[in-house]
C-alpha cells in the first residue's frame, strides 16, 4: 500500500491543496463570531480548523522533502476504471434530479457493468435491471424513500397499481 518513505505522484499537490483548504476554512471560522469569547459559536470551529492548518502545514513540509517514488506512475494512482467510475458518478449526480431515479440508475448500472464485465449488452441489461429492481423494492416500496421522480410519473403508477389491486381484491 502506501509507502511513507517515498512520495507518490500527486502527493505534493494533494498536501498543498489540503493546506489551502485548511487556511480557507480557518478564515471562514474566524468570520463566524470572531474572537468573542470562550463560548462563542466560532470558538470550536476555530480550534478545529486551526488544528487542520497546523497539521496540514507539517504534512506538506514532510511531503515536499520526500524523494519521489520511481516505481509508481500516475496510472497507479488513478487507473482507468477509477476515472471512468468517477466520471460516471458525476453524470449520475447531475442527471438524477432532472431525469429521475429509475432511468438514470438503469443507464448508470448498464454502462458500468457492460464496460467492466466486457459482457454482452443483454446480459448487462439483465443484471442491471435485477439490481435496480431490488434497490427499488427495498427503498421505494418498503422504506417509502421518494427518490427524485424526474420523467417517470412513479407515484401515479403506484397509486394506479394499488387501486387495481384493491379493486381486484373486492
Amino acid at each position: 500500500m502506501h509507502d511513507p518513505s517515498r512520495r507518490l505522484p500527486g502527493e505534493r499537490l494533494f498536501s498543498l491543496l489540503l493546506v489551502a483548504l485548511s487556511l480557507f476554512l480557518f478564515y471562514e471560522a474566524t468570520k463566524i463570531s470572531g474572537f468573542e469569547g470562550l463560548s462563542a459559536p466560532g470558538s470550536f470551529p476555530m480550534f478545529a480548523t486551526g488544528s487542520m492548518v497546523i497539521t496540514a502545514v507539517i504534512v506538506a513540509l514532510q511531503t515536499v522533502r520526500l524523494p519521489e517514488s520511481d516505481e509508481h506512475g500516475w496510472r497507479a494512482i488513478l487507473p482507468g476504471f477509477v476515472i471512468f467510475m468517477a466520471v460516471m458518478m458525476i453524470f449520475y449526480a447531475l442527471a438524477l434530479k432532472p431525469v429521475g431515479f429509475l432511468p438514470t440508475s438503469f443507464v448508470f448500472l448498464l454502462i458500468s457493468t457492460k464496460v467492466m464485465m466486457r459482457s454482452s449488452l443483454a446480459k448487462a441489461a439483465l443484471i442491471s435491471a435485477l439490481s435496480l429492481a431490488l434497490v427499488y423494492v427495498v427503498f421505494r416500496l418498503i422504506f417509502s424513500v421518494l427518490m427524485p421522480e424526474g420523467i417517470v410519473p412513479e407515484r401515479e403508477i403506484i397509486a394506479g397499481m394499488r387501486s387495481i389491486l384493491s379493486g381486484g381484491g373486492q
Partner: peptide, 19 residues
C-alpha cells in the same frame, strides 16, 4: 388496462401519494 384503470383516478385528488 392499466391506463384505463388509472384514468378515473386521475380526475380526482388525490391521484397519487402525497408527500
Amino acid at each position: 388496462a392499466l391506463m384505463v384503470a388509472t384514468a378515473p383516478a386521475l380526475a380526482e385528488y388525490p391521484e397519487k401519494d402525497i408527500q
